[in-house]
Design a binder for these strands. Sequence first.
DNA 1: GAATCCACTTAACATAGATTAAGAAATCAT
DNA 2: ATGATTTCTTAATCTATGTTAAGTGGATTC
Lengths: 192, 192
Amino acid sequence: MNVFSDIIHAMYPVSDESIGKLWAHAEIITLQKGEFLIKDGTVNRNLYLIKSGLLRSFHLEGDREDTLWFATDGDAVASMHSIFAKSPAIADIIALTETTLFQIPWTTLETLYEQCHDLANWGRRIAEEELYCLERRYRILGTGDAYSRFRAFMNLRPNSFIREIPLKDIASYLGMTPQTLSKLRARYAAEK
Amino acid sequence: MNVFSDIIHAMYPVSDESIGKLWAHAEIITLQKGEFLIKDGTVNRNLYLIKSGLLRSFHLEGDREDTLWFATDGDAVASMHSIFAKSPAIADIIALTETTLFQIPWTTLETLYEQCHDLANWGRRIAEEELYCLERRYRILGTGDAYSRFRAFMNLRPNSFIREIPLKDIASYLGMTPQTLSKLRARYAAEK
DNA sequence: GAATCCACTTAACATAGATTAAGAAATCAT
DNA sequence: ATGATTTCTTAATCTATGTTAAGTGGATTC
């Protein structure tokens, strides 16, 4: 599942010809653990498809990090703010493990969306799916008190790639301090 | 700006022929103030375009309401959860004032997206724009303490349709109680 | 045009979760 | 391997915000 065409196909049935056109403009990027894909305040108007690895998007507010999402193999990633407002990104994206990505410039995509009907639908599907994820993320994890958010998170994905994510990042994703998360984990284990 | 074709055009340049195809499947809906467009727990697989009025999306958590967004003239509205997961919606949408909408079934849209290249791009643009809005909503208003969220909100849209929204709903949008919002408003007025 | 109901404000009190601190465990670098 | 960071946990305070309560004004209903 980490070949370029497989990633595209998993999202929407695109013709080989169209995939070829995407591929012609794709560049392969590798990030080491701790390296930034996008820095808050810099312009980045690319779409990224994760071949393998683990990314985290967050924003630095004073000395507190607010984590927006995690992404892994096969996921699409971009700074919509940079792309739409045509201005610097308003969040950081960092690699949690060594990560390999396909990079495609947004301007190229805009052109291809005009040229190829199937790519337009592929682009639509990506945006719709992201939207669906974000809607769920906030409905399920942005609501209730700290413990109910934690439980909702545990129910959501008990044993996926989330295992590899440091607890401090999960705490920030759930909108609490690592200390609070630690307490809730102890409580959760006891209640089970 | 409240004719069907104008709303479509404001999003993406779609041909008259394609707009005609959309129009053939559109139904006009009118909601009175306080009426629900979508009830949490019911399936609703339609896209709505607001001709005029004001909507609020929220989720009832115990006796606390969490407001996700407000929408007004020209905005697109749908329950992505209902559409994608093909299951009941996970939030309510209610009319804050008398609201008139164009309703188009999602299954129809899927068909038209396959048929018409320009509609596929129009659908893509809707999803991307919504994504951009949601990204900003949480980056700007889901971060920091109550007062900084309130200030960010004031800077964002000091004098738009937001004026018509009851303060209790704005409080819920900003993740605080009406009492806290009231205190912050007094503080804000004093500091200015 | 009362009467009733909400929306909004103010204030006293209560509490969930932040902050601070410090030790244990894991990871990283030399 | 060994020392140095960094992560995770536990525990004692502290504070921002929720909760409860009560009063005012504006809107809605009969």
